[in-house]
Design a protein around this nucleic acid. Sequence first.
DNA 1: TTTCTATATGCAATCGATTGCACAAATTTA
DNA 2: TAAATTTGTGCAATCGATTGCATATAGAAA
Lengths: 343, 343
Amino acid sequence: MNSKKGVTIYDIAQQLKITPSMVSRALSGNGYVNDATRQLVRETAEALNYKRNTVASNLRMGQTKTIGVIVPRINQNFFANVIAGIENIAYEKGYSLIICQSDEQNEKEVKSVNTLINQRVECIVISVSADSYNYKHLQNVIDQGIQLIQFDRVAEDLDTLKVINDNEQASFDAIRHLIEQGYKKIALLEGPQNLAIFRQRKNGYLRALKQHGLPVKDDYIIENAWTKELGAAATKKLLGFNDAPDAIFASTSDFSALGVLEVANQLNIKVPSQLGICGYSNEAFTEITSPSITTVDQYSVDMGKTVANLFFDRIEEQADAIAAKTVSIKPELIIRGSTSRMV
Amino acid sequence: MNSKKGVTIYDIAQQLKITPSMVSRALSGNGYVNDATRQLVRETAEALNYKRNTVASNLRMGQTKTIGVIVPRINQNFFANVIAGIENIAYEKGYSLIICQSDEQNEKEVKSVNTLINQRVECIVISVSADSYNYKHLQNVIDQGIQLIQFDRVAEDLDTLKVINDNEQASFDAIRHLIEQGYKKIALLEGPQNLAIFRQRKNGYLRALKQHGLPVKDDYIIENAWTKELGAAATKKLLGFNDAPDAIFASTSDFSALGVLEVANQLNIKVPSQLGICGYSNEAFTEITSPSITTVDQYSVDMGKTVANLFFDRIEEQADAIAAKTVSIKPELIIRGSTSRMV
DNA sequence: TTTCTATATGCAATCGATTGCACAAATTTA
DNA sequence: TAAATTTGTGCAATCGATTGCATATAGAAA
């Protein structure tokens, strides 16, 4: 009971003078076992405080019941929510989660992928880092016969399951809403254009302007403004123009939108009457700023659940022939005070 | 290269007409290997896209280089931050993280502990769920010879490493600050008293009142008010008293404090002049409410790093004789608008 | 030249659980 | 009662990597 090494099925077998095979069968429920024997094995296992060694079991069975998840930052609301969603479904199915954080660095992402492959996880779920410049490591996952599911930030060229928000549509909706509220000079704070999500959001912006006959001014499009500080700086620049915008869509994040709001307050520019502000992500705080911030809810927990369900559907149907597909979750525009000037 | 089964050291050995032992040595760097052979092995491994099977390796070596983490909710800022902190250190040391979520349910917590034991993780890091009524499952971890580190919400009776905030002191500091600001009738929103952290915060509250000669009114202590809604309800009740409090310390969370603030705004009670409000956790939003909310920063990422470092220190020093100890991280009172009426 | 040592390699056991196959005992069916 | 099933049990191989021990070869020291 207190020996240094753990208790194994051999110990149980020895004690009961039966073979390890029988112990294994009794405990796993596979194959024939006399009820009395099974009962005895269970009791002995309990008494010895036996814990099945999953490592050994996994090796023999050639499976690990483990999903690997790689995100840029664990402690970013959106990703934490997605992970929580995945965990929910995985737990029900008896699967474990190994979590890696790429810290937005390609190198760390590559290493994490390799670790997960080595661990023989059955599926790798990933949202790529901002500085990922190529996707050999992801192709590798596929070559190893491991399921690969991308979400949110996806490498579009790779033929995998993908779960994304319809960023283009959400962005379009946001701009249309601004236009309907009477804003005519709408600026865009955009994210790194090597990531598809940000390109899509930009496209939605462009399409909406075009469809409503508004001109696109290059000056109104600010690159890489995705922190509060960068959002603030961008705003100062934009509001300094002779022909300053009357609305700013922070397509990168709510933090960026917050920076916009703070600068507006600072400059005593009234929101929403003089300036409309729309963010992205529906962070908790957007509800409680004054005015509250209009934003886009990405249904992050649902996204995680969708990802997990895709994996389980696939393995349960044995249908690895199912073509790669993209599931698009429609985000929802949450209209709040920062854009509501026509009441 | 594309056979169904993965490439093993046997495949490499066969190709080079050497033994698997040599391949293992060449790849791991243990034992003598001719440079030429090593080079050849490396190239072949690369060419065949060999990936070492960690499962097999772990079984043989009797280690897993894995840490298990159990938290009530992954997508709660504080916990996500702690996990991020742990991940940071673990990654440097080449360790992986298996994450479980107890959803505040004892049953799920127990199952998660067992899964982690079965996986033979080398350390289990846990913050216990709110409805944990006994700690047999944790005792079990210790009995299995697995390191157990508790953080934040800890079972005090268990003789383990613990990393906590000095909740009592932080709470004391908060109340003292309120008193210094001239508040005299301070109410407390308290959390489930079966959790030590909430008892400690209450103690800090009581000690501060006593030390400053203020009376303790039972009416001013509201149980289990740890969501925004419950905080709001509690506030309505408190402000309805003939002798209503002039300050509310939401020791449970910032969300609760937010509920307080919203009710105050609703009732047109001025914060901080008529009512002081102090929260707990330093959630991002506390900075941007109006007024901003005074709160306690728990240094959550550091907490995660501390936890991980404790584990690595211990295994690196081989010093499992080190007595269980408690590391206390001093939280910091962040003073903001909601309590600053004397400027 | 002989002895010794450092280096290189192979053999076979091991980690712990699972399972196909063989055989025996018990039970059912013909 | 004999033949056919259904159960119960054991044996030994297997999953893939690692490592102690034995052996062989090279070069170095005596």
